[in-house]
């Protein structure tokens, strides 16, 4: 299994996938505090235009919370990036037939499946740390952490959501015929959650709720408000890992 994970890592670095992902995540990580920093200046630039239209722009105050607002706003964006770039992990190998050779060498399908899953988790976690680390560093440097509550949970929950998405993605990878299907399946799960989120009664049960870390930061929500969403997300995670594992056993390669 370590051999296969090693191969996955080699693939990530040598095909340049890791580099692309890192660049994008570093970019988004810097973008959040940068946007916050630039906001007053942007308003100033536009204030004359606004004044012409009869709008008066008052003093704009920027703090750590402004930066974190950006952080959570961009979160679905980075989810989309990671899903797009990870969607072909299995299907590439189906199309080329490279797994046939691995399986005929006697490596069990379970080991292949879990290698891919763990690599997916690791990539997501690494990218998440880059994104979060950079934002955190700059934000604390510029504005400190005053007025930001529950920051640990606020960023832990979105990470769990990402782990769930990676599990769902791997499950679809084990079942689907091409990466289009993987994207469609994972996207469907994602968007169904978002659409259902508009129904206020059930929104607290949905995994997408986990991305609302901002509510924790600005104190409009308690950590315990996220309990249901967390349980549901973890359940979906476990179920999709199991379904994917069983389906991959029976899959025609």
């Amino acid at each position: 299994m370590t051999a296969f994970i090693k191969k996955e890592c080699m693939e990530l670095t040598r095909t340049g996938k890791l580099l692309i992902l890192s660049i994008i995540f570093i970019f988004f990580g810097i973008l959040n505090p940068a946007m916050a920093k630039l906001t007053p200046w942007l308003y100033e630039m536009l204030s004359e235009t606004f004044a012409d239209q009869g709008l008066i722009v008052g003093e704009v105050t920027v703090n750590a919370l402004t930066s974190w607002t950006q952080y959570f706003k961009n979160f679905s964006m980075i989810m989309i990036v990671i899903v797009l770039l990870s969607s072909a992990a299995f299907t590439n190998e189906y199309q080329k037939g490279t797994l046939v050779q691995v399986v005929t060498k006697g490596l069990s399908r379970r080991k292949i499946y879990f290698s891919k899953l763990l690599t997916g988790y690791a990539v997501w976690t690494a990218m998440f740390l880059i994104y979060t680390g950079i934002t955190l560093g700059y934000t604390v440097y510029f504005w400190g952490s005053d007025g930001v509550s529950n920051l640990f949970y606020a960023i832990l929950f979105p990470w769990v959501f990402g782990m769930m998405i990676m599990s769902v993605l791997t499950m679809f990878g084990a079942v689907a015929g091409n990466s289009g299907h993987v994207l469609l399946g994972t996207g469907a799960v994602f968007f169904i959650c978002i659409i259902l989120g508009y129904v206020p009664k059930i929104s607290k049960y949905l995994p997408t709720k986990l991305m609302d870390g901002l509510e924790l930061c600005n104190g409009t929500a308690e950590v315990s408000d996220f309990a249901y969403a967390l349980i549901i997300a973890l359940t979906i995670m476990v179920i999709s890992v199991i379904i994917g594992m069983v389906a991959f056993d029976k899959r025609k390669l």
Partner: peptide
């Protein structure tokens, strides 16, 4: 038609 990991 054997296919391998082309990056190796």
């Amino acid at each position: 038609v054997p296919e391998y990991y082309a990056f190796m």
